[in-house]
Amino acid sequence: MVNKVLLVLLVGGALWLGAWWWLGGDRELKKIVRQSDRLAAALHKAPGNGLLGLATRTREIADFFAHQAQITPGEPLPALHSREEVLGVAASTLQAVSSLEVKILDREVSWVRPQEEAAMRLAVEVLVQAHGERQKLLHTYAVNWIREEERWVIATAQIAESIRRPDSSGQ
């Protein structure tokens, strides 16, 4: 009898959680999470992949960013101030590297202005191979997502490491 009650409670709880997850107000946040997954997938370049379809690919990448996006990707890439600049850097980067893989290790996302702007903290591992050298980079980014033309796009992104270099002044 006790087992049956527990089973009913467990199943009921699971159904309630599922309904809350699927129908609740967090659906838009889930869309943003999916957008970040899609961006990581769009940045992928397998070894041996040629430049076929590069223009389409870079446009696809640029579409994840707002028209006036402010991006600080970190060394060696420069700071970017518009979607067009993102497009240019994405094209030159994909041309320069022989392989590129972006893995999202962890993230947290919360509303800045509900349904309009969200802040995401994103931990990524970038595996890049260029000129015969393979490099693994770990970065944490602070990303702001906004809704533009009914799509979630990145308005700002900057390095936000939890371990930071001391100031050069020594203080």
């Binding site: 290790l105 962890d106 993230r107 947290e108 903290r121 931990a123 944490t140 939890s162 371990i163």
Partner: peptide, 9 residues
């Protein structure tokens, strides 16, 4: 902590 609670330095 990096971001969230799964990845760490």
């Amino acid at each position: 902590r990096m971001a969230g609670w799964r990845a760490f330095y």
